[in-house]
């Protein structure tokens, strides 16, 4: 059992937790993920590490309470326990050979983009962050991004905060200006796909953080397989970061919807169970 040390609501349905897991905190790096189970009969879900406090022995996770399991997790309070918490899994994000980076985050994915931006910033690199949300209520971590970015663009779909645009617009403008040598995108699959496509004519290195359906997270089940550069790769052990140009996004999108019906049914059940949480 793993204790929840702190809980914060960053935006409606977007929650930050600090989990007591000293061994994970000790070795976690930006780009890696953990797998947790909320209860003894729960599913294993991967969440990318949003930060760690080595001295305190805690790992930060940020998640949107959008599915049955994340809704269950959101019901837990500081002081409660979760059943399982294992990690860090996957390979850390490689920041070598980058001088000027574009860090693109979308929705809850910005929570995972933040440690990458912070890492680059800490290494003295030029960081241009572009983060996008649906509307102003969902905006998270604005100050944190501003603090670690040399340039910072905030966009929303409806223009209620920052510019009314998709992340690809400021991304394209930045690419036009030039001088960047890497684009790191973390967020929903369609966002990552179009961020990569925006970069393609400019030929700069792209890195995407894939988050497919996983079970064990150690390479044992093959559920998280992706086609990258025509080859089958397992996101859990070969990734989660991959060269964006090489990833077959359409296949990844199809695979991510494999259990859509079951998920919808379980989500509805969870909604009924936690009346009022919607």
């Amino acid at each position: 059992m793993y204790r929840i040390l702190e809980k914060k609501t960053l935006a409606p349905s977007v929650i930050e937790m600090q989990i007591d897991a000293p061994l994970v905190a000790r070795s976690a790096q930006a780009g890696q993920f953990i797998i947790l189970r909320v209860d003894a009969d729960g599913e294993r879900i991967p969440l990318t590490v949003a930060g760690q406090d080595r001295a305190r022995g805690s790992v930060k996770i940020i998640f949107g309470a959008v599915g049955a399991t994340t809704m269950r997790l959101a019901r837990k309070e500081a002081g409660d326990h979760i059943e399982d918490f294992v990690g860090p899994l996957g390979r850390p994000t490689v920041t070598e050979n980058i001088r000027r980076a574009l860090v693109v985050g979308g929705g809850v994915g910005t929570a995972i983009a933040l440690p990458v931006a912070e890492k680059l910033h800490g290494e003295g690199k030029f960081v241009h962050s572009i983060v996008g949300f649906r509307n102003k209520d969902l905006v998270i971590l604005k100050e944190d991004f501003a603090a670690c970015s040399d340039l910072f663009d905030l966009v929303t779909d409806d223009g209620s905060a920052g510019r009314k645009a998709l992340v690809t617009l400021p991304l394209k403008e930045a690419l036009e200006k030039g001088g960047y040598d890497c684009m790191i995108a973390i967020g929903p699959l369609p966002m990552m796909k179009y961020a990569v496509e925006t970069c393609r004519p400019y030929g700069i290195r792209t890195v995407v953080s894939m988050n497919p359906i996983m079970i064990d997270g150690t390479g044992m089940c093959g559920c998280c397989r992706l086609t990258v550069g025509g080859k089958m790769r397992f996101a859990c052990v070969d990734g989660p970061d991959f060269d964006g140009y090489e990833v077959d996004f359409d296949e990844a999108i199809a695979r991510s919807g494999q259990y859509r019906e079951e998920e919808a049914r379980r989500r509805e059940e969870a909604c009924r169970l936690f009346e009022g949480v919607k």
Binding site: I215, M220, G222, T227, D248, R255, Q258
Partner: peptide, 25 residues
């Protein structure tokens, strides 16, 4: 523990499992 696939077309279609994944589920 790492499951092998055959390297034939279509192995990433939905509804295709490694035995490890299916049995683990």
């Amino acid at each position: 523990g790492l499951p092998s696939f055959m390297g034939i077309p279509g192995e990433s279609l939905c509804g295709v499992y490694s035995a490890n994944e299916f049995l683990t589920r």
